[in-house]
Amino acid sequence: MTTTVTTRTVTYPADGLTMTGHLALPTGTGRRPAVLIGPEGMGPSDIERRRAEALAGLGYVALAFDLHGGRYLDDPEEMLARCLPLLAAPDRMRDIGHAALDVLLAEPRTDPGRVAAIGYGTGGAIALELGRAGVDLRAIGTVNGLTTGRPGEAARIRCPVWAGVGSEDPIMSAAQRDAYAAEMRAGDVDWRLVTYGGALHAFHHPPVDHATPPGVGHHPRHARRAWRDILDLLAECLPVTGAG
Rank of each mutant, 00 (worst) to 15 (best):
L25H: 03
T20D: 06
P33K: 01
T18L: 15
V35H: 08
D46A: 14
D15K: 02
G43D: 08
G41M: 03
I47P: 03
R50K: 14
L55R: 05
R51M: 09
A54G: 13
R51L: 14
P26L: 02
R51K: 09
A24V: 08
G21Q: 10
G21N: 08
E53Q: 13
G30H: 11
R31K: 14
G57K: 01
G28Q: 05
E40M: 12
M19W: 03
D15Q: 07
G41P: 13
G30D: 14
G57W: 10
P39A: 02
L36K: 12
A34R: 06
R51Y: 06
L23R: 04
L25M: 05
P26M: 03
T18I: 15
P26Y: 08
P39I: 01
T20G: 00
I37S: 05
P13E: 02
T20L: 13
R32I: 09
T11Y: 07
E48P: 00
L55P: 08
L58N: 06
H22F: 15
A14W: 11
T18C: 11
P26V: 09
D15M: 07
Y12R: 05
L23G: 00
H22Y: 14
G38I: 15
L23D: 04
T20Y: 07
Y12H: 08
D46R: 13
T29Y: 04
A54Q: 13
G16Y: 13
G21R: 05
E53P: 02
G28H: 01
G41D: 00
L17F: 13
M19A: 10
G41T: 12
E40Y: 02
A52T: 12
A24F: 11
P44D: 06
G41I: 07
L25E: 01
E53C: 11
A56R: 00
D46M: 03
D46V: 12
A56W: 00
G30R: 05
G21I: 12
M19H: 14
L55Q: 09
E48T: 13
R50M: 10
I47A: 05
E40P: 14
S45T: 15
P44H: 07
G43F: 08
T20A: 11
G28M: 04
I47T: 10
G30Q: 07
A34V: 11
T20F: 05
G28D: 01
P33E: 08
E40G: 15
G30I: 02
R32P: 11
I37H: 10
L25D: 00
L58F: 00
E40S: 14
L36W: 10
A56S: 00
G41Q: 09
T27R: 04
R32E: 07
A54V: 04
D46H: 14
A52V: 14
G43S: 10
G28L: 04
R49E: 11
A14G: 12
G16C: 04
P13Y: 02
A14R: 07
E48G: 00
R31Q: 15
G21T: 01
A54P: 05
T29P: 01
G57E: 04
A56N: 06
T11I: 08
A56L: 03
P39G: 04
A52W: 12
R49S: 10
T27F: 02
L17M: 15
G41H: 01
R31V: 06
R32M: 08
R51C: 04
L23V: 13
A34N: 04
R51S: 08
D46S: 14
T11V: 13
R49M: 11
